[in-house]
């Protein structure tokens, strides 16, 4: 299989496989979470579950409780990583072309300079987060192989994407193949690893907020 055939495969069959695993796995997992369900509380509500749930789904992205230096580091680096990841994923013109091809609609792109900065910050933050995971006692205790695997799976698309835009080290066709393949690995692993938090976090937040909302607690 030559470079072109490999590229065609990752853009075609490979992507179909990855999309199938991702969508099937994620829809299964998220719906399953909802179907496990919970007992409806018989206590008298003091507030609205939905108001609390929806508020927390949104609000928890921004709440910054007082933190220790290690906590602050995690929050700042975590934000940079996620922000950079989303900016590059959703606002690079080439990616929007992909979404337009799949979903039939697109949106305006951000200038390349912004994308570049976001990508570099995101990559830097990820390296810092990995280093922190290796030295911080709390994170070391909590970490298992999955944490390192998912780190690599998230890092590679960013790295290969960054290299691709500049044709660093390899030819375009090779880099494009690597980039798409790395995204496919990410998609395939996502439903079965902690990467599932990309969706489940909103279910978690809803439940958390619903319990608070039910009790009428203004968070």
């Amino acid at each position: 299989m030559d470079a072109q055939e490999l590229l065609i495969w990752v853009r075609g069959a490979g992507l179909q496989i990855a999309a199938a695993v991702f969508v099937l796995g994620m829809s299964y997992r998220m719906l399953h979470l909802l179907l496990i369900g919970r007992k409806k509380s018989l206590a008298e509500a003091r507030g609205s579950e939905w108001a609390g749930g929806l508020r927390t789904m949104w609000q928890r992205s921004f709440v910054l409780p007082k933190l220790s230096p290690r906590g602050r580091f995690t929050v700042v680096a975590g934000y940079l990583f996620h922000l950079g990841f989303f900016v590059t994923l959703f606002f690079l013109s080439q990616h929007i072309a992909l979404f337009r091809a799949v979903f039939g609609f697109g949106w305006p792109a951000l200038p390349r300079g912004v994308i570049d900065i976001a990508a570099v910050l995101s990559l830097g933050a990820m390296v810092a987060l990995l280093a922190h995971r290796l030295v911080d006692p709390v994170k070391r205790l909590l970490s298992d192989y999955q944490d390192y695997l998912t780190w690599a799976l998230s890092f590679l698309p960013l790295l290969t994407g960054f290299m691709l835009l500049r044709e660093i080290a390899f030819e375009y066709v090779t880099l494009l193949t690597l980039h798409i393949a790395s995204v496919e690995l990410l998609l395939i692993a996502a439903p079965f690893t902690k990467l599932a938090h990309m969706f489940s976090t909103f279910i978690s937040r809803w439940y958390n907020g619903a319990v608070m909302g039910f009790k009428g607690i203004r968070t």
């Binding site: 065609i8 853009r11 075609g12 069959a13 992507l15 179909q16 999309a19 199938a20 695993v21 991702f22 969508v23 099937l24 796995g25 994620m26 829809s27 299964y28 997992r29 998220m30 719906l31 399953h32 179907l35 080439q94 990616h95 072309a97 992909l98 337009r100 091809a101 799949v102 979903f103 494009l176």
Partner: peptide, 24 residues
């Protein structure tokens, strides 16, 4: 575009979503 799928991914995704929901 080179960045877009060279095959029909949308249909695959739709079928997968139904299958996933069924499994769930």
């Amino acid at each position: 575009p080179l960045s877009a799928p060279a095959a029909d991914v949308a249909t695959v995704a739709q079928v997968s979503m139904v299958a996933g929901a069924g499994a769930a």
